[in-house]
Amino acid sequence: MVVHELDLDLDAFEGPFDLLLTLVLREELDLADVDVARIVLAFVERLAERRELDLEACGEFLVLTSALLELKARGLFGDEEADLADLEPEEAAEELARRLAEYRRIKEAAAWLSERLDREADRFFRLGASPLAPEPARRLAAQEPETLRRALRRLAVEPPAVSLAHLELRFPPVERFVERFRALLERRDRFVFDTEVAGLTRVEQAVALLALLELRKAGSIALAQAAPFAPIQVARSEEETRTHDERRVSRWNARSA
């Protein structure tokens, strides 16, 4: 009979004995969960099946099981093991007596509970889920539904359409001002921009300025300003003055011819 192959069926483990030992030594299985008595029982049963006593197997099993028990006992004391080892025999005995007494009391309490449970076995009662009546509702002052209706009605009215009129900027064409300034310079050599645009809207004034810049870019006018924000003086450019004079001379010649 081979002890290592002893088949076990425990709560915490199912399989051969040697695998159990391996798992315990690798600390993959907590010995606290292993019922050693059941292992002994399994072994004894297996032994009984075989008619003859296998002394070698028994010896091996005893050694393995006692090692297991020692490991388990050490494990149960955990960190306190060291404390206990430091104690004098009498103190250790005292400590053990205290622990044993504590456990005994708990065992008795458990027995009392068990007895109580038996005695109460004929007590049936309804087991509900959560409490039926939860928090008491928050008390509110008496409310008039009509007031609420009116308040909601006021909110339910369709809001007035938003006017987008201010977004629609109407820009007069730049050409209009270009033409206007050209015409002005036909008649006069110079003019003051600010005077010409006074009374126009801001948008019109802006477009007028653009027209002025267009003319300047085309080389038709010369601009002068004494200081920032001072009135802008507009004059015909020299080139323009020349062509203007030529035009005037030719017009005059044509008329006199």
């Binding site: 005995a93 005292e94 053990l96 007596a97 205290r98 044993l100 007494a101 005994r104 009391r105 008795e108």
Partner: peptide
């Protein structure tokens, strides 16, 4: 809950 601590102690 009768845990006779004295008795336990003596035995230990």
């Amino acid at each position: 809950l009768g845990a006779d601590e004295d008795e336990l102690r003596e035995r230990l």
